[in-house]
Design a protein around this nucleic acid. Structure first.
Length: 554
RNA sequence: GGCCCUAUCGUCUAACGGUUAGGACGGAGCCUUCUCAAGGCUUAAAUCAGGGUUCGAUUCCCUGUAGGGUCACCA
């Protein structure tokens, strides 16, 4: 007796209907059709970005198609808005799909809208005796698992534990009559103890056991499980290269079973080691729930550019990224973008455990990228970042845009530009003292008193500086050499030693050496003891700000 | 625990079976210097252990160990 109509009464089309509806793709030889199948269970994971980058580049470089498929078959874990967040995030990082929820002829690309498709294929399996209903409850299932554990056998629904596999027709009929909920299970003929060869594009030739589990392909709500949806979708969508995380490797036997059941050609598979994180002494896969660095939004919030992230991910995928990126001609080429990286599939072919996320390396790449930018561009990007993350600063900067551009141009449009900004939040704290709103006179005074012995002396020095630095030449002089000459004269006038030897011989005769003199000015006008060259700092700050700040301190 | 994957500096990784085991990030030091940043130079730092095979093993094989993954009506 064929139960397929009772089991799946709503199925209207047979599988040929669907297979005809989605004809084979007409692509040039070697074109790879890849896909990214995120499930909308929260924010876009950095690992998804990583997989997206690899999938997209492989598709693009081969003249193929990169598909985005939303795997929303688990309505329990689905988070509202997550789908939009994924699409937006991919776009933001330049990883738009060629086909996906918004475009493409092989859709729908939301699995929740493909239920009729899956059911057609499931029904086909039932008719061919390759799938059957199982009426076991969760309780029965977990009791069985406990029993198996007690018996020290492999837990699972297989062999003699597959209770409904060969159930008498009457029993099934009765359960059906009582409207008992059921899952549809795949009827496997495999043997766990028999190994089969499996070629992984990245890991090489592997031996994996055959699958012998009668795993569910349709849940009791009629929605497919991942395994089933994966095979049906990737067949219908013409995927010919499945690139996914290594965590899927152990379900390869199930998928192989399914491909064979339909007699479809198995696509190429490539498993990539997932991104890890070090926590104490243990290393683990980066987790959405526990790790803030898993969330791509964290990077945007900290102020890492999309390119920095992409560059870093390229680096993880292709270790030769460094050689390319740091080649002298590339490093000095300000037009070069990380997006120009000649990606190589070959370099994905390597073992090793999954890489640990290394923020220092990210900083290094990010710093290089920012060093390629002109002051104006940095200013613009920093303000854009600040508008949503530090509105107060954004306002200040916008109100003094011309000035801010000058600040960020200091030592930056040079052959060897400054490399002191690695992200926008750190960048803001690096330069904000140029604005009076962020100048901290109290802190400046604190630092200076410690260096200049006492407050009286500090006040004298400040007064002297106010007087002498009122000369325009300190702000208008265009030659660094001349400026230094002048400032040295000034140092002498105010009572500091310019000559190292003289100071060494009789330190008491001076208020300090030239370094201290410069530090005094530096801290006095910026509140910081680390700034770019004072020559530029004074020029950009301008006389009015300099004098007013010095007065504030004294 | 079963099964699967993996194993080179702290991190990411190179090395037809023959190298003083290379590079990058990070660290340390020096030079330059008004402090940083940058730049230049130098430096410390690794083949998980034990057996084979071989003239020769980081590389091939076995065992052990360690790490990771996976064992759901989640993906």
């Amino acid at each position: 007796m064929d139960f397929s109509d009772i089991l799946l009464p709503d199925v209207k089309n047979d599988i040929d209907f669907w297979i005809k509806k989605y004809p084979a793709r007409d692509l040039k030889a070697g074109a790879k059709v890849t896909r990214l199948p995120p499930s909308p269970t929260g924010f876009l994971h950095i690992g998804a970005l990583y997989m997206g980058l690899i999938n997209k580049r492989i598709a693009r470089d081969s003249g193929g198609i990169f598909i985005l498929r939303i795997e929303d078959t688990d309505n329990e874990r689905e988070v509202p808005g997550a789908r939009e967040l994924i699409i937006k995030g991919l776009k933001q990082y330049g990883l738009e799909s060629d086909e996906g929820p918004t475009a493409g002829n092989y859709g729908p690309y939301l699995q929740s809208e493909r239920v009729d498709i899956y059911q057609s294929f499931a029904k086909d399996l039932i008719k061919r005796g390759l799938a059957y209903p199982c009426f076991m409850t969760h309780e029965e299932l977990s009791a069985m698992r406990k029993e198996q554990e007690a018996e020290k056998v492999r837990p699972g629904y297989y062999g003699k534990y597959a209770k409904w596999r060969d159930a008498p027709k009457e029993k099934t009929e009765e359960a059906l009559k009582n409207k008992t909920p059921f899952v549809l299970r795949f009827k496997s003929n495999g043997d766990q103890n028999t190994k089969q060869p499996f070629k992984d594009e990245f890991l090489g030739d592997l031996q994996v056991p055959q699958n012998d589990e009668d795993f569910p392909i349709l849940k009791s709500n009629g929605i497919p499980t991942y395994h089933f949806a994966h095979v049906v979708d990737d067949y219908l969508m013409g995927t010919n290269f499945v690139i996914r995380g290594e965590e899927w490797l152990s379900s390869v036997p199930k998928h192989l079973d399914l491909w064979r059941a339909f007699n479809w050609q198995v696509p190429a598979y490539g498993h990539v080691m997932p991104l890890n994180k070090q926590e104490g002494s243990t290393v683990r896969k980066i987790s959405k729930r526990k790790d803030p660095e898993a969330n791509f939004e964290m990077y945007a919030k900290t102020g890492y550019s999309e390119d920095a992230i992409i560059g870093y991910l390229y680096r993880l995928a292709n270790p030769s990224f460094d050689d390319w990126w740091q080649a002298p001609e590339n490093l000095s080429n300000k037009k070069l973008s990380v997006r120009d990286f000649p990606f190589s599939i070959e370099e994905l072919k390597r073992g090793g455990r999954g890489p640990l996320l290394d923020m220092k390396k990210l900083d290094s790449i990010s710093g290089d990228i920012i060093a390629k930018m002109s002051g104006d561009v940095i200013s613009q990007k920093m303000i854009a970042w600040a508008e949503s993350n530090d509105p107060e600063f954004a306002n200040v900067a916008k109100n003094n845009l011309e000035y801010f551009n000058q600040v960020l141009s200091i030592e930056r449009d040079a052959e060897n530009p400054r490399k002191d900004i690695v992200n926008w939040s750190q960048g803001v704290s690096q330069v904000n003292y140029f604005f009076d709103e962020y100048f901290d006179a109290k802190k400046a005074k604190q630092i200076l008193v410690a260096d200049l012995v006492d407050e009286n002396r500090l006040n004298t020095v400040m007064k002297d500086l106010v007087q002498t630095l009122s000369d325009d030449s300190y702000y208008t002089e265009n030659s660094l050499e001349n400026w230094v000459e002048n400032i040295k004269k000034l140092a002498t006038m105010v009572g500091f030693a310019v000559d190292r030897k003289a100071y060494k011989e009789a330190p008491d005769k001076f208020k300090g050496d030239f370094a201290l003199f410069m530090k005094t000015i530096r801290v006095g006008v910026t509140g910081r003891d680390r700034t770019p060259n004072l020559f530029y700092v004074l020029k950009v700050l301008g006389k009015d700000r300099v004098l007013s700040r010095l007065k504030q301190i004294s």
